[in-house]
Design a protein around this nucleic acid. Sequence first.
DNA 1: GCCTAACCGAGACGGTACGTCACGTCTTTTA
DNA 2: TAAAAGACGTGACGTACCGTCTCGGTTAGGC
Lengths: 212, 212, 212, 212
Amino acid sequence: MNLVESRAGDAGDDRVGSPVRGRPRSEAVERSIIEGVMKLLEEGVPLSELSIERVARTAGVGKATIYRRWSGKEELFLDVVRAAEPPDPVLPGTSMRDDLVVLLEATRQRGLLNRSSAILHNVFAQMKSSPKIWNAYHATVVAPRRRAGIEVLRRGQRDGELRADVDVDLMGDLIFGPMLVRTSLRPDADLPEDLAERIVDTVLEGLRPPAR
Amino acid sequence: MNLVESRAGDAGDDRVGSPVRGRPRSEAVERSIIEGVMKLLEEGVPLSELSIERVARTAGVGKATIYRRWSGKEELFLDVVRAAEPPDPVLPGTSMRDDLVVLLEATRQRGLLNRSSAILHNVFAQMKSSPKIWNAYHATVVAPRRRAGIEVLRRGQRDGELRADVDVDLMGDLIFGPMLVRTSLRPDADLPEDLAERIVDTVLEGLRPPAR
Amino acid sequence: MNLVESRAGDAGDDRVGSPVRGRPRSEAVERSIIEGVMKLLEEGVPLSELSIERVARTAGVGKATIYRRWSGKEELFLDVVRAAEPPDPVLPGTSMRDDLVVLLEATRQRGLLNRSSAILHNVFAQMKSSPKIWNAYHATVVAPRRRAGIEVLRRGQRDGELRADVDVDLMGDLIFGPMLVRTSLRPDADLPEDLAERIVDTVLEGLRPPAR
Amino acid sequence: MNLVESRAGDAGDDRVGSPVRGRPRSEAVERSIIEGVMKLLEEGVPLSELSIERVARTAGVGKATIYRRWSGKEELFLDVVRAAEPPDPVLPGTSMRDDLVVLLEATRQRGLLNRSSAILHNVFAQMKSSPKIWNAYHATVVAPRRRAGIEVLRRGQRDGELRADVDVDLMGDLIFGPMLVRTSLRPDADLPEDLAERIVDTVLEGLRPPAR
DNA sequence: GCCTAACCGAGACGGTACGTCACGTCTTTTA
DNA sequence: TAAAAGACGTGACGTACCGTCTCGGTTAGGC
């Protein structure tokens, strides 16, 4: 998970009995660092004041111990976000429409979480400002979910729930775009309970006025 | 436009006696600061290395001169973005559909600009990471455009191009959401030339398979 | 008195009738600046915090108005000290011994003033740290007094109160040195009322001309 | 010696477990800072241009490293002066008169040093302008020497070289005052080779115990 | 009674230094 | 060899003054 995990004498060690020498890294230290960051964020400390120095002080840990595991602030935050990421929703599988609603509702829940708890709101924002980290987060967390959505759509095409000539890639954005805009870009947008259903149904239904 | 502009006797001062005291602020200095930031960004300097100190050095200006106008890095960047903002597109007015395509195409162009020139990509990202600045940007730049889109939709309803019972607020996100996701959130998405048309037409058309 | 007194059109003006043109400098401004400095010093503001900027603010005066009169902080302080300098004592003339006691007592009074009022203690100290200013102060204030002391001693030699072979220059330091050490160099020394008499009498004891 | 030296487990710590924690401060760095200041002073840099920033640059050291040891410019200069202080002279002990001449000659040498090398002249002046630092210098450097002088005088009284009823405290100033005035207060005074002898002999002339 | 030059307050301006903080690396002792 | 501790060089932070420079507005002669 970390980006800096190479231990001295790690690779290419022939002897099986003692792959690493010296004192092993403490997992407890690892946990206490990540939990320390979360504690600070929950206490409302703005991200700009979250220095490595302060994290080390809070976790009762030396700075070098942090740098031994992560190459910098961004990598550390990436792991913090990953640790706080809610599990993927279970799809009912009753229909494409229902599966899409469930996926979209999970996205809405995430948006609500970001807004209310403020734990991750800023970490998230910070991540977006760092292309390297945002790409890493995208690749390991966001993209898989998007792929799951695409897969649902493709299955819908096979089952006749969606026109076969539709570009599922664009379709994914048509479904998730409106929700993501409201959760991530428009700070003032509201997220009513039936939003997921309304988006899915509206997109699927067609919006032209009925032929008279 | 600036956030720090308390000077005695600003606009709308009835009294004739003492409109401004002391040497007035130089507009040339103001311009050279903003242009200095742009120059640095164009040269590929990462935003994290864009200190006020460096901006001052580049613009040949004292730090205090910057702090006299902006209360910090974020406020300065906000003005940089505003200065680089392209003008609003002119709507053809031939139909709701055409107007929407033009608006959406402008959004796509903005996305292309952000990606290619790298001038604003990072400033943008940075802005998103600061709620205060993002809200200010949203209120003065993004929201008006969104209102323009909503207005087009409402006119479409009056003219019978859009069903009268549709929630234009949600509709705005249905149209602009997919494009914004591709320009702002998905770093790997492509932006083909006909994307605006396809989004508008697909959303308006309806996606259910035709009754057999 | 000031070090920067050149007015434009000052020197080399042929015409006699109009030596200065334009609005003349206000003497009131001059006074209010010096009094402003004294007020601040009396309030206990340490000299290191006495910036030109603050002096200008206190006196309700523009900075340029100060720089028009003095070339810097040191020159200004020099004039402040000169303005606060007590008048030279009047010598009784009854005898060399009495004149010396009066001069030495004036020095003691000055030391007491410096210690108690704290007005000048620090200005004095600051002045000593600037060779240029200290020399100027020495030349215009201290040296004349020293010359007065030397003159008294010389008169004493003529009148037979002091041995004729004594080096009056060294003698001056023998008399004034002990007092100056206590007033200027030893912060903990006490200055009893009869100090001047004791110094003069002790030093003279061995230097009286031998009874013939 | 320094004024800022709070480190855990200093001297006199009985507990064996944790005498000092973390990387110890480098003595080499300490030396290079003080030597850097001296180098600059020798090059003729006026004291007013001796900023902490410049000292750090010269010594190849971070500003924080300086502030870790001294709380400001004055404290640093105090240590510089102490480092440059010549060793106390060795008293011959042949007589009170000879001892006094040796002590006074050391004072004269110090004055010559201050004048010629210019290393310390200004540091000295600066120190005098800061009561806190001057008092510290006085207490640790000047006062002990004065006490040594007083002790010599007292011994002279015991040995019959000085009248027993003389106030040795005042006597100290009578001897050292004239020399100090010439070395510290009068910038134009000369310091001839036989000055120490002449002062001592002149002052003692009247204070010898009466021949029985 | 005007003209005009210098004054005056205010404050912007390019600089420099302040003292603090965090960065990421390093050097200690202890485990 | 990991770990806590903290020193180290580096460099940005935001503030305060420096001495100079515009501004609009005042004050005095000289015309």
